[in-house]
């Protein structure tokens, strides 16, 4: 059995647990909100963009990033996923491979590197269609690929989180690492846009 979480039930359980913890003085009234705010404050696609710009300008870093994503982004002070340690696999786009990420079972996402996920990423339509007809979905995002490019869809069905390493655009040889980072979009890191 798989599919959507039962939001109503889990939300009620969480609210109940929270109020019990507060009632008994185990956590303060604002503690949970503060922790969540602190966690989200550092979560942004700007982080993923910095990782990409470093990989474009530092071949040794790129090699480490592709071998062990979590360790490499850790060098820049970032983590892959939630509060606990998570594996990160960075999938590199090349002239023959284009990568797209999805979570068909729920909505797993490298939140720290990409920020809160967009609504469409969590939609039934994206989750069910991108594994079946990625070219049609990509076309709806305005992405068309040459015929000889093979698409790989990464379905985040366990603990590993995924991020796409887009191709560096032509004509950017003179740009600095910070300028390169500004070219990288959130959808580029998901694989639903080219950079």
């Amino acid at each position: 059995m798989s599919g959507d979480h039962d939001d109503a039930v889990i939300s009620r359980q969480v609210r109940l647990l929270e109020s019990l913890l507060e009632e008994r003085g185990i956590v303060g009234g604002d503690t949970v909100d503060e922790v969540i705010d602190g966690f989200l404050a550092g979560a942004s696609p700007v982080n993923g963009a910095k990782v990409v710009a470093r990989a474009w300008t530092d071949p040794a870093f790129k090699e480490r990033l592709l071998a062990d994503g979590a360790a490499a982004v850790g060098e820049l002070g970032f983590a892959a996923g939630g509060v606990q340690h998570q594996r990160l696999r960075v999938a590199e786009n090349t002239d023959s491979v284009h990568n797209v990420i999805v979570c068909t079972l729920c909505s797993c996402y490298p939140l720290r590197l990409l920020g809160p996920s967009p609504g469409w990423y969590k939609s039934e339509a994206y989750r069910s269609r991108v594994v079946r007809e990625p070219l049609a979905v990509l076309a709806e995002f305005g992405v068309t690929l040459p015929d000889d490019v093979k698409v790989t869809v990464w379905d985040s069905s366990a603990e590993t989180r995924y991020m796409v390493l887009p191709r560096r655009p032509a004509g950017t040889d003179g740009l600095s690492e910070p300028d390169l980072a500004t070219l990288v979009t959130r959808n580029g890191l998901i694989g639903t846009a080219l950079v």
């Binding site: 696999r89 093979k150 790989t152 869809v153 990464w154 379905d155 366990a158 590993t160």
Partner: peptide, 25 residues
């Protein structure tokens, strides 16, 4: 152990030229 496993679209859906990778126990 969880394994990354690569599936050809043709084996999943009977059509398509892409691959899908899943992480499976």
């Amino acid at each position: 152990m969880v394994y990354a496993v690569r599936f050809a679209a043709r084996d999943l859906w009977g059509e398509g030229d892409h691959d899908v990778v899943l992480d499976l126990s």
